[in-house]
Design a protein around this nucleic acid. Structure first.
Lengths: 214, 214
DNA sequence: AAAGAATAAGTGCGACCGGTCGGTTTTATG
DNA sequence: CATAAAACCGACCGGTCGCACTTATTCTTT
């Protein structure tokens, strides 16, 4: 991460290609998994030679770690970002859930969800990759919880609410969307995931009217 | 499936070894995925030669399909079975959820959940394996729903309840347990998953007293 | 005792894997 | 314009994969 020796087009170009490669890497990993993220596959997908990739990542683990980092950037931009543009409180919580579903439904990642694929693969394989994935999940749950805490502070959710518990539920209802959408049906699944969280929040909110009806 | 040519111990023995192999195959696949279920790995794990396995399954896909079938048998026995021994109605629904959590927590499968691993791997790979996984998920959701319908019929859940919706929620809250337990913490995760479904059912039940309190 | 199927084992092939190496092109700097 | 650094490439290595083919060995039925 020590790029940017001002005005050096070589480094700039290098960074651009790195990011372009990572964009593809995350997309490929969402389909084939982080283990199926092969240098050969990645190179072919980009129309690039395999060895050219080794100039940027000395081994596969580095590539995997950077892919996790890039997936987090994507997630921050496309899921957390839109939520933060909604009014704070219970509406922001629901906006977060909807942004997540929109991100899945939008098909930005052909495999559905990078993190689900990576976590199910690495949750039982000790190492740096697992550690970063665990950290990612921890941070994500912390973010959901922080929005819930905010809603409590604003008085839109009841005081004393177990926000950690609710954060788990919201995450679970969003996450299982990925597989269900592809194996059961997209529209039906997203409708159910949306409704589940909406009804849950409406049931808890001090003023359910601020949330959409259906 | 044309075993059992009356009294022929060879076929019987063949079936037994097949089942022993499948038991290991499902366990291995829960860790390394259905793709990571290689003949070499399976043979080594069993202390058997690779070629001996080819006598039973001519190619990898056959093995994968049979592994799915065996995982379904396990699931039927260890998750659906205990539930059916609980009194019908809302208690049976919750017993199903608890049996699932117990199955996960019991560590019968070292990788946590065969189906989650397999589904996230194959949900975007057309083929026979995906088809069987989709069928498995469909049947499972249908089973959950049937228990819910039963509870409605018994008057323990309100008439007009969208049981398909609730079945999705219950499945989601159970499924995300697998990854969370390993990356966040076992006890905390199972407690949350248990509580989430319990509270949901208690909120809907015409007589919440039939369900446990905490 | 003979026959024959089920099971096990060895061997080899082509494909692909992660990774290395030597060399060429591009780019900023003196 | 020379040079060095970075980006990039083609060829290649050792290893493992799925899988076929061939050859024993074990067990059951006749």
């Amino acid at each position: 991460m020590d790029d940017e020796k001002r005005g050096d087009g070589r480094l700039l170009r290098g960074r651009r290609t790195r990011e372009a490669v990572l964009e593809s890497a995350v997309a490929l990993a969402s389909v084939h998994g982080l283990d199926g993220l092969t240098f050969a596959r990645l190179a072919e997908h980009l129309g690039v030679s395999k060895s050219g990739l080794f100039a940027h990542w000395k081994d596969k683990e580095r590539l995997q770690l950077d892919a996790v980092g890039w997936a987090r950037r994507q997630w921050t931009e496309h899921v957390m970002g839109p939520a933060l543009r909604a009014p704070a409180g219970v509406r922001r919580v629901f906006a977060l859930h909807e942004a997540r579903l929109a991100f899945y439904a939008g098909g930005a990642l052909p495999g559905g969800c990078f993190f689900l694929a990576a976590q199910t693969e690495f949750d039982d394989r000790p190492g740096a990759v697992r550690a970063r994935l665990a950290e990612s999940l921890h941070d994500w749950l912390g973010f959901v919880r922080s929005l819930l805490d905010e809603a409590v502070t604003l008085g839109e959710l009841p005081a004393g609410l177990d926000t950690g518990q609710l954060a788990y539920e919201i995450d679970a209802l969003g996450e299982s969307t990925v597989v269900h959408a592809r194996l059961v049906g997209h529209d039906l699944t997203y409708a159910r995931a949306r409704r589940a969280v909406l009804e849950r929040l409406r049931g808890l909110a001090t003023d359910p009217a601020v949330l959409p009806e259906g």
